[in-house]
Design a protein around this nucleic acid. Structure first.
Lengths: 259, 259
DNA sequence: CGACCGATTGACACAGCTCAAATGAAGTGG
DNA sequence: CCACTTCATTTGAGCTGTGTCAATCGGTCG
C-alpha cells in the first residue's frame, strides 16, 4: 500500500478542473497531519460525536454507513485514496452517519482549524474543496438512482464501474484491477441487498466472465459488458473529457459495444 | 401561494445556525432575481445543459430526477420553498440531473455571476451557502438509507416526515398539513416503487388513519405513528435543538410514544 | 486442533412488479 | 350543458426477484 506524499492524491482531485497556484499547492502540502493505520472495520467517525478534524484517505477504503431499525446497515458511500471522508465536519456541528474502514486502511487526520484557516486564506482552494463536496453529492444522487431503480446485478455492476473510475482519477486501478479487502456483506450493504443474494450476484458475474473476485482482489475482465449491465454512464462523476472518453475502454482490449 | 418577500425563506435557511449581519442580509435581499411561474412538470434544468443561473424555490415544489435505462425515472430529491435547487451550478460545469416542477410552482432565477460575486465578498455568506450544500448531501444520504433498507410503506412514511419538517423550518405546514399538487406516481418515483404499489401504500396509510390525502392536500393525522412507521429520526436534517425537540409532536396532540 | 469467520448452497416465503382493465375527475370544445 | 378526451386513481391476478433461515464448507489464526 504505497502512499507517496500523503497529499498527492488529494491535490490530484482538487486540481481536477482548475490548476492551483504553486502557493496554494504549498498550503495544502503544509497542512499538519497525523497518519494513522486502521484495521478492518475500525470506526473513524461516530454519528453525533463532534470532532475537530477531517479524515483524508491515503490507502485502502473507508465507507460511510448508518444502521436502520432492526435491519442491516446501509453503506451510503465509499471513500478512496485522495477523498476526504467527512467534509461535512467543516460546516456542520455533528456528523449524521458513521464512517469506518473497509478492510485495513491508512488515513490522515487534518485539524479542522488548520483546514478552515487555509480555506479562509485562499478563495481558490475554498472553491476546490466546495466543489469536492458538490461532486460527492452528485455521487450520492447516483446511488439513489442505483438503489431505487436498478436490480441487484446492475447495482453491483454499477458500483464496481464507479469504483474503477474513481480510482483511476487518482492514478490507481489503471489495469482494471484493485485489491479490496472487504467482504461480500460489505458489498451487500452498499447495494441494499442481502449478503446471500450478494453472493449469488458475484457468482453470476463470475459465470458471465465479467469479473474475477478472488479473496482479496477484483479484476474486471469485460469492462464494456460491465458498463452495459450496470447501465453506467459516468457523467455524474464530472470527469474531464479526456478521462470520460476513456470510459469506453479505459485500459482493456477494445471490443465493439454491439454484438 | 403567498410568497412574502422572495428571499425571506432563503434567509430563514441561511440563518439556521449563524445569524447573518445586517449587511449580509442586505446583500442577499439585493440579489437580482427573475420570478417565473411554472406549470406542473415544467422542466427547469436539463441534464448536461450548462446554465448561468441558480433556481430558488418560492412556492410549490421542485424535484431532481433522472431517467434510467428503460425503466421509470427516479426522483433524487425534493426542493421546498427557500431551497436553491441547483447549487451545483455554482462550481460544477454542467448539471448531472434534471430538475422539474412537481405541480405548479413559483421560482426565482438568480444569475450565477451575481451570486458568485456576493459569495466572494462575504465569507460568512459563503459559509452559509456551503453549509446549505452539505445539508442537502445529508438528505441524499438519508434517501440512500431509505431506498436501500426500508420497505415501501416505511419509505413513504419517511419521505412524508421529512417533508413536514423541512416545510416547518421555513414556516410552512405548521398544522401538519400542506397542499401538494403531485401525483401518486411522483411519490412512487421518489420511493423507488411502482405507481400501482404506491397507490396501495397510500390506501394503507389512509386505512391506518395516519394521513389524509385528498386530491390536492396532505394532512398528517397521527404524527407519532408516522414517525415510528417510517423509522424517522430527524438528526440528519441538522435542525436546531428547539425544532428537533418539536419532533415528538410538532403541532399535534401530545401522545406518549410507548404503548 | 479447535474456533471463528466468510463463502456457498438449498428450500421456501413474500413484498412488490407487470399487465390489464375499470372507474373517477377535470377539462375542452361544440 | 352534454359528448369526448385525458389523465390519475383504483382493483385484480399472476409472476418473480430477493429475503430469510439453516446448514455446510473452507480457510485462517491462535
Amino acid at each position: 500500500m504505497e502512499i507517496g506524499r500523503p497529499y498527492s492524491r488529494l491535490l490530484c482531485r482538487l486540481e481536477h478542473f482548475d490548476i492551483l497556484s504553486l502557493h496554494d499547492r504549498q498550503r495544502v502540502a503544509e497542512l499538519p497531519l497525523t497518519v494513522v493505520n486502521c484495521v478492518a472495520n475500525q470506526q473513524i467517525v461516530r454519528i453525533g460525536e463532534k470532532s475537530s478534524r477531517c479524515t483524508l484517505v491515503l490507502g485502502g477504503f473507508l465507507c460511510g454507513h448508518k444502521q436502520v431499525g432492526g435491519s442491516r446497515r446501509q453503506i451510503t458511500s465509499f471513500f478512496v485514496p485522495g477523498d476526504i471522508a467527512d467534509l461535512h465536519a467543516l460546516h456542520l456541528p455533528s456528523p449524521d452517519q458513521d464512517i469506518s474502514a473497509l478492510g485495513p486502511a491508512v488515513v490522515a487526520f487534518l485539524p479542522r482549524a488548520a483546514l478552515a484557516d487555509m480555506l479562509g486564506n485562499s478563495p481558490r482552494l475554498a472553491k476546490a474543496f466546495w466543489r469536492e463536496t458538490l461532486m460527492q453529492a452528485a455521487v450520492y444522487r447516483e446511488w439513489i438512482i442505483n438503489l431505487g431503480r436498478r436490480d441487484a446485478i446492475a447495482r453491483v455492476a454499477h458500483v464496481l464501474c464507479e469504483l474503477i473510475l474513481r480510482l483511476q482519477t487518482v492514478g490507481l486501478a489503471r489495469d482494471l484491477c484493485f485489491s479490496m479487502h472487504w467482504t461480500q456483506m460489505d458489498l451487500a450493504d452498499a447495494c441494499g441487498i442481502s449478503n446471500v443474494h450478494a453472493n449469488r450476484i458475484v457468482q453470476e458475474l463470475r459465470r458471465l466472465r465479467l469479473i474475477d473476485w478472488d479473496s482479496r482482489q477484483i479484476r474486471i475482465r469485460d469492462w464494456e459488458a460491465l458498463v452495459r449491465l450496470g447501465d453506467f454512464s459516468p457523467n455524474y462523476l464530472h470527469l474531464r473529457d479526456a478521462e470520460a472518453h476513456g470510459i469506453s475502454a479505459p485500459q482493456g482490449l477494445l471490443e465493439p459495444a454491439e454484438p
